Simulated assay, not measured.
Amino acid sequence: MRRSTNVELLASTTEKLIRPFEAMALFLQAANLFSSAVNDRYSALGVRVVVVLGVLHLALAGLVLPHRGPLTRGRTWTAAWIAMIFVVQLLLARLLAPGDFAAYGTGVPMGNYALIPLGVFAFYPWGRHRRLIEVGLIVAVVAHPLVILALIHRWQLTGAHVRSVVMYAGWAVVWFLVGKGIAWLCRIAVRLETEALSASYTATLGDLHTHVESAIEEIEAGNDAREVAHRLRLLTAARRGQLLLRAGNVGAADLFKNAIRACGDRLRLVSGPQLGGLTVPREHAILLEQGLADLLKNVVVHGSGSAEVGFTMTDSDMTLDVRDFGPGLEPSRLDVSGSSLHQLRTTLRERGGDLRVLPPPPGGGAAVRVTVPIWSRR
């Protein structure tokens, strides 16, 4: 039987988010254990057992983050985690001193210990038996305190015991609904992300197939294949740049790679910057992308086709240096109205940045520096 769309969306989201959810649940369970060791009355041995259990839960939380958690490892691991919840509470009931059992008013020690995982269980897509499993878990968690109380008091339950269990059942439903709410928000996020991706594809790549087919026809008609490939490369680089610049923060390495790729074999990069995982805010990334594209195009057209590219960042500015090995560049070229470099300098200065020609480097050629402010200057 095919699962519903909501379950499919929830399943895809769960694979990404279930680790931190499970890790947080285990961390909160550990906090409950440490709190119980301080607030409840145990024998010396009981305190040591509770502390060891807390440390084990912390270790499990640390293991879940880099690795898959219980719910995504299969039925055996899931059953083991659920069993652990009930076993720990039964153990605590045996370790607590007489008369200290209902300290939290819920009828069980550390009632939240069993309630916390309900939020994760509600978030997880169980498949076609999901509703049955969820109801079974809620009933089991709610009935468990009754069993503990009955065993301790030899089935002599008072009205206070029943009221505390009813209160416990209410909190169980609350925790479960919290998990359902998170699942609902995740489904919305996945749907919006899918719609945004589809819109991005339509806006930036929807006509790419037409351009590819036109390029094939041009080559078949005898046009210069190298020139056709160059135009197609520029087009794909422009479309890729549009996709990159839709994000709020853009990977600097992706910007540089895209601009260099657009030049193809017409550009030889002698040296480039080490950018690592640096990201740039979108408004600054647009200026960097425009500056790098214009300067590399100038290297290909007017320089020797070889370039050194440098990039530095301070507290106030980002600096892009491009050096070629051609005949050089007169600073007056930047004043030629209508030229790409003049337009670039005008745009940069409007945003508080600048474009200037540096003194000729040793060995000849031209060196140009683009400065982009990190903070807008007024």
Rank of each mutant, 00 (worst) to 15 (best):
F121P: 03
L344H: 07
L53E: 02
G107T: 00
S198W: 11
V64M: 00
H284E: 06
R154N: 13
V142G: 05
A30K: 02
A122K: 01
T347C: 12
D40L: 10
A307G: 09
K297L: 05
F121V: 09
E8N: 15
L92G: 02
S306G: 01
V88Q: 00
L358Q: 09
R240T: 06
F86Y: 08
A59Q: 15
Q290F: 15
E15Y: 13
V55L: 15
M318E: 05
L146A: 14
A196Y: 10
W375S: 13
I188N: 11
L137F: 08
W175S: 04
L192M: 13
M84C: 14
A97T: 09
G310Q: 03
A83W: 10
D335G: 08
H129W: 14
P327S: 10
F176M: 01
D317N: 09
S306W: 10
S304H: 13
W77D: 07
L205V: 11
G241E: 00
P359M: 01
Y104K: 12
R266S: 10
S306C: 14
R323Y: 12
G170C: 05
E227M: 09
N39H: 14
R2N: 12
R349H: 11
L60D: 02
V368H: 00
T347E: 06
V212H: 06
I133P: 02
V147I: 14
N39V: 15
A293L: 07
W171Q: 03
N258Q: 07
R261M: 15
G272V: 02
A262R: 01
E350K: 12
A61H: 00
G99N: 04
A44R: 14
F101C: 06
L341V: 08
H144V: 08
G364N: 12
R378Y: 11
N258V: 01
C263N: 00
R246D: 07
T279Q: 09
R128V: 13
